[in-house]
Simulated assay, not measured.
Amino acid sequence: MRIRALLALTAAAASLSACATADRYDAAGDVHALLTSIRNNDRAAFDSLVDHQALKGALETRMVEEARKSGLKGGWQAAAIALAGPAADFAGSALIRPEVFRAAANYYGYTPDKPIPGRIAIASALRPAGDGRVCAAKKDGPCMLTFTREGATWRLSGFDAQAVNLQLKR
């Protein structure tokens, strides 16, 4: 009985692992297409592979968190929180563009002078992030870019704020 339970548990773990690997490989095709659109400054392809609303929502959340931590007094904190939505819309329009994400691509080594790696190499840089998402990270590093499956397409749905800071500091 114990052997059957152990075999069943092993089979379940292998099945989940295979699913995660399949997701990473599947997502790698769209990540490759996103990297190509960034390198080529192809706005239409970029926009089709980016969830603008999710990214703007992440910007708004970050702005609200910063406003709450700021210690502003006399209603200024409430005003900053109230302005987070419109500010995120404006910032999203300004920042969610191929040329801004080129800094993140450069961070991962996808510079214009090098060919973009194939699907298998990209899949090896992706890791499961839960809830049907995968994220791109350097080995043992933090997730910088998060991708979510929407139908048959994996779209960029989240990013580490440091990716934007890299571009703004230049």
Rank of each mutant, 00 (worst) to 15 (best):
Q77E: 12
A78N: 08
A78G: 06
A79K: 09
A82I: 05
A82S: 12
L83C: 10
L83E: 08
D89M: 06
D89I: 06
F90Q: 10
G92V: 07
S93N: 14
S93T: 11
S93W: 08
L95Q: 04
I96C: 06
I96R: 03
R97L: 09
F101R: 00
F101V: 04
F101C: 02
A103M: 07
A103T: 11
A104P: 11
A104T: 13
N106Y: 08
Y107V: 04
Y108V: 10
P112D: 12
P112Q: 07
D113M: 04
D113A: 12
D113I: 06
K114T: 09
K114L: 09
P115L: 04
I116A: 05
P117L: 05
I120V: 15
A121R: 14
A121D: 12
I122T: 06
I122K: 01
I122G: 00
A123D: 03
S124A: 13
A125N: 10
L126Y: 00
R127G: 02
R127Y: 00
P128T: 06
P128H: 04
P128R: 01
P128V: 00
A129L: 05
G130V: 04
D131W: 01
D131R: 07
D131V: 02
G132N: 09
R133H: 12
R133G: 03
C135M: 08
C135P: 09
A136M: 15
A136Q: 15
A137E: 13
K138Y: 08
K139R: 15
K139F: 14
G141E: 15
G141K: 13
P142S: 15
P142D: 15
M144D: 15
M144N: 15
M144V: 13
M144Q: 15
T146E: 13
T146M: 07
T146L: 09
T146D: 11
E150F: 10
A152W: 08
A152L: 12
A152R: 13
A152V: 13
A152F: 13
T153A: 03
T153I: 12
W154V: 05
R155H: 04
R155P: 06
L156N: 01
S157Y: 03
F159A: 12
D160N: 15
A161D: 13
A161M: 14
A161P: 11
Q162W: 11
Q162T: 11
A163P: 09
A163S: 15
